[in-house]
Amino acid sequence: MDTFALVVTIAVALFFTYTNGFHDSANAIATSVSTRALTPRAALAMAAVMNLAGAFLGSGVAKTVSEGLIQTPEGSKGMGILFAALVGAITWNLITWYFGLPSSSSHALFGGMVGAALAGGTTVYWDGVLEKVVIPMFVSPIVGMLAGYLVMTAILWMFRRANPHKAKRGFRIAQTVSAAGMALGHGLQDAQKTMGIVVMALVIADVEDYGDPIPVWVKIVCAVMLSLGTYAGGWRIMRTLGRKIIELDPPQGFAAETTGASIMFTTAFLFKAPISTTHVITSAIMGVGATKRLNAVRWGVAKNIVLGWFITMPAAALVAAGAFGVVHLAFL
C-alpha cells in the first residue's frame, strides 16, 4: 500500500474533524455562550479539555463507523473510496457552515461513505445504515424535543416560587456543568467517528487490525482537531442555535444542554450508535422553547434546519460518488 496515500487520507480525515468543529463543537457550547453563562474564550477552553477527555471514554461508536456501515475496501481502490467519502463530507460541511446551517457532520460523513462505496462497487451494510444511522436520525430529534420540553417543564415547576433573578444566576453557574457535559458527550461521539475512519485507513494499509485497540495518537489528534475547528469557525453556527431559533435564558440553556448530553451518553454507551450532536441539541432547544409558548420558537428557521437534515446524506453521497469518479480516472 502506498504510504503517501495513507498519509493523505488520514490528513483529510483530520481536516474533516476540523470542519466538524465548525458545526458540532460549536453546538456543544453555543447555548452557554448565548446566555452569557460562559465567555467565548472560557467556553472554548472548556470544550477543548472535555472533547479530549470524551475521546478516551469509549470506542463503540468508532467500531460502528469502521466496521458496521460499509465493507472495508482493499488496496489503492479502497483508500480512494475512503478519500472520496471524506471529500463528500467536507464539501457539505463547508457549504452548510457558510450559510450558518447546523447541518449534521455525522450524516455528511455517513452519506459520503455510502456514496463512495456504491460508486466504488463496495458492499454497503444497509441493515447497519438503517439501524445505526437512519433510525437514530429520526428518533433522536423527537426524543430531544420531547425530553427538552419535559426537563424544562420540570424546572419551571420546581422553581416556580424561586426569585427569578437568583434562579437565573444559579442556572448560569449550573450551565458550566451542563455545557461541560455536552462537550464531553461531543468528544465521546464525534471524535470517535473520525477515529473509526482513521482505523479503517490503517486496516486498508495493513498497518492495524480491527481487533487492535485504537492507537492513543489517533484519539489525541482527533480530539485536538475538533477543538481547533471550534475556535476557527464555530461562531456562525452559534448564532443560529443561540439566537435565531429562540432567545435563550440560563434555565432554558441548562435544560437543553442537560437533555442533549444525556441523549449522547445513552446512545454511545448503550447502543453504540453514532448520533448527531446537531440534531440532539437543536431539537432540545426547540422543545425547551416550546414550554414558553409555541410561537416563541422561530419555526421558519427550524424548518430550514430540518430540511438540511434530510438532504445532508444524499447530497454528501452524490459529492462523494463524483469525487471517487475523479480519483478513479486520475489515480486508479
Rank of each mutant, 00 (worst) to 15 (best):
A232D: 14
G181T: 01
V224Q: 09
S178K: 04
D212K: 10
A201K: 05
G233K: 07
W157V: 11
V216M: 14
V139G: 04
G242K: 09
T194M: 05
L226R: 02
I246C: 13
Y149W: 15
P141Q: 10
G211L: 03
M182N: 08
F171A: 11
M200P: 00
R172I: 03
I142H: 04
I220R: 11
G233I: 03
V203L: 01
G229D: 09
Y210G: 05
E131P: 00
Q252T: 09
Q189C: 11
G121A: 01
G229Q: 00
I155V: 12
C222K: 02
G253F: 11
P164Y: 06
G185M: 14
G211I: 04
I214S: 00
D190Y: 06
G148N: 05
E257W: 04
M145H: 05
T176G: 15
N163M: 01
K166V: 14
G170E: 07
W235A: 13
W126A: 08
T240K: 12
V207F: 09
V124H: 03
L248E: 10
Y231I: 14
V221A: 12
P251C: 06
R160V: 10
L188C: 02
I142T: 13
R239W: 06
L202H: 02
V207D: 08
V124A: 05
P141V: 01
I197V: 15
S178M: 06
F159L: 03
R243T: 10
G148F: 04
E247G: 11
M158R: 14
W217S: 12
F138Y: 04
L146A: 14
T176W: 15
F138G: 03
I220S: 02
A205H: 09
A191F: 00
G121M: 07
G185W: 10
G196N: 06
Y149K: 10
G181Y: 01
A205G: 09
F171E: 08
M145T: 13
E257P: 05
D209N: 12
G229L: 11
W126S: 09
G211Q: 04
R161Q: 11
A154Y: 02
S140L: 01
G148E: 07
G211S: 08
A223G: 13
G196D: 05
G242V: 03
Y125H: 08
G234M: 10
I155W: 02
K219A: 07
P213M: 04
D206W: 00
M200H: 00
L130E: 10
E257K: 12
E131D: 12
M182C: 13
